[in-house]
C-alpha cells in the first residue's frame, strides 16, 4: 500500500480525468447531433426526428449503430495507412484541450501556466488531420477541400490568438484558472467586447462550420475532405467537429463569459459546473443558429474578411489594451 500512497497525485488524477473527458466527448456529440437536427427542423418549420424514442431522442444512437454496420471502403488508389490514420488524428487532438479546461473551481485536471497556448496548439492540430485525409484520399474534391481548410485555418488562427492575447494582457496570466478567477469581479466580455466578437467569429470559421464551411461545401466539392470516407471513419470526423465546437465554446466561456462564475442556483450544490455548461451550450446554440440562417460565403470573401478586417481590428484592439494596461 505504501507504493500506491507514494505515487504522485497526477498519477490518479489524469486517468480519471481522461475517462471523464472521453465520456463527455461522446455524450456531447450525441446531444449536439440531436440538437442540430431538431433545431434545424424547427427553424425550417419541420419537426425533426420524431419516430425513434420520445421526440426522436434515440435518433443519434441509432445512426451511430448504423454507421458502425457500414462497410469501410478504402479506395484503390488511396494511401492506405494515412487514409486509415486521418480520422483518429482528427479526433484525438480535439479531446486533449479538456485536460486544462476549468469546469468548476476544483474540477480541472491540470492547471498549467500556459493553458491558453496549449489549447490553441492542440486545436490547430486538427488542420493536419484534415489535410492528411484530403491528401490520402487521392480524390480531387477531397484535396481541394483540404487545401481550402488549410488556408482558412491559417487565416483565422491569427485573429483567434490575437483576441485571446488581449484578454490575457488584462489578466496578466496564461493560466485558465487565473483567467477565470480574475472574472469574479467583472466578466472580460464587458472589458473586451471587440475581442470576444472577433474570437467568436473566427472560432466558428476554425471549426469549419457554416457560414464558413467551405472545406466541405456540398454544392461544389461533393463532401470536401471526407468525400471518400464511409461508415465510422466519417463519423469520427463529425465527432471531432462537434468536440471542436465544444472546445472553442468553452474557451470563449472561460476567457470571456466568466467561466463558472454565476449566482448560486437554488437547491443545487454544484451550480458552478451548471453555469459553465449553460454558457457553453448557449454559445453552441448560437453556432447552430448561424448554420441554419446564413448562406455560405465565397472563398475570396472569407479570406478578405479575415485579412482585411478581423486581423487589423484585433491588432488595434491588442495595441489599445497594451497601452491601457501599461498606464
Amino acid at each position: 500500500m505504501d507504493f500506491i500512497a507514494n505515487l504522485p497525485p497526477h498519477f490518479f488524477r489524469i486517468p480519471i480525468a481522461l475517462t471523464l473527458v472521453i465520456s463527455l466527448v461522446f455524450i456531447n456529440a450525441l446531444i449536439m447531433v440531436y440538437l442540430e437536427r431538431k433545431i434545424a427542423g424547427h427553424m425550417q418549420f419541420r419537426l425533426g426526428p420524431m419516430e425513434v424514442g420520445w421526440h426522436g431522442l434515440l435518433q443519434t444512437a441509432i445512426d451511430a449503430v448504423k454507421l458502425m454496420s457500414k462497410q469501410l471502403i478504402v479506395p484503390d488508389k488511396a494511401h492506405t495507412r494515412l487514409f486509415r490514420i486521418a480520422p483518429l488524428l482528427a479526433f484525438t487532438p480535439a479531446v486533449l484541450p479538456f485536460a486544462v479546461m476549468p469546469f468548476a473551481p476544483n474540477l480541472q485536471a491540470v492547471d498549467i501556466n500556459i493553458g491558453v497556448i496549449f489549447i490553441i496548439a492542440m486545436a490547430s492540430l486538427n488542420v493536419m488531420a484534415i489535410f492528411v485525409a484530403g491528401w490520402a484520399s487521392n480524390n480531387k474534391y477531397a484535396l481541394l477541400g483540404a487545401m481550402r481548410s488549410v488556408s482558412q485555418n491559417i487565416a483565422y488562427e491569427i485573429p483567434v490568438l490575437l483576441s485571446l492575447l488581449s484578454a490575457v494582457f488584462v489578466v496578466g496570466s496564461f493560466s485558465l484558472g487565473d483567467i477565470v478567477g480574475y472574472q469574479g469581479k467583472i466578466w472580460l466580455f464587458i472589458v473586451q467586447p471587440l475581442a470576444f466578437l472577433i474570437y467568436f467569429v473566427s472560432s466558428v470559421a476554425e471549426t469549419n462550420r457554416a457560414p464558413f464551411d467551405l472545406p466541405e461545401a456540398e454544392s461544389e466539392l461533393t463532401a470536401g475532405f471526407h468525400t471518400e470516407y464511409s461508415g465510422m471513419a466519417f463519423a469520427l470526423f463529425f465527432l471531432g467537429e462537434y468536440t471542436e465546437m465544444f472546445v472553442v465554446s468553452s474557451i470563449a466561456t472561460a476567457v470571456f463569459l466568466g467561466g463558472w462564475h454565476g449566482f448560486p442556483l437554488p437547491f443545487f450544490e454544484y451550480s458552478s459546473v451548471v453555469w459553465f455548461l449553460l454558457k457553453t451550450y448557449f454559445l453552441m446554440f448560437l453556432m447552430i443558429w448561424f448554420r441554419w440562417t446564413f448562406p455560405r460565403v465565397r472563398f475570396d470573401q472569407l479570406l478578405n474578411f479575415s485579412w482585411k478586417y478581423l486581423i487589423p481590428f484585433s491588432l488595434v484592439n491588442l495595441l489599445i489594451t497594451a497601452v491601457v494596461v501599461k498606464l
Binding site: R37, R46, P49, E51, Q59, I73, E218, Y229, F234
Partner: peptide, 14 residues
Amino acid sequence: SRYGAEVFRPSPRQ
C-alpha cells in the same frame, strides 16, 4: 426527417 431520412449525403460513400 421524422423517420431519420432527411440527411441527404452528397457523397455516395456515406
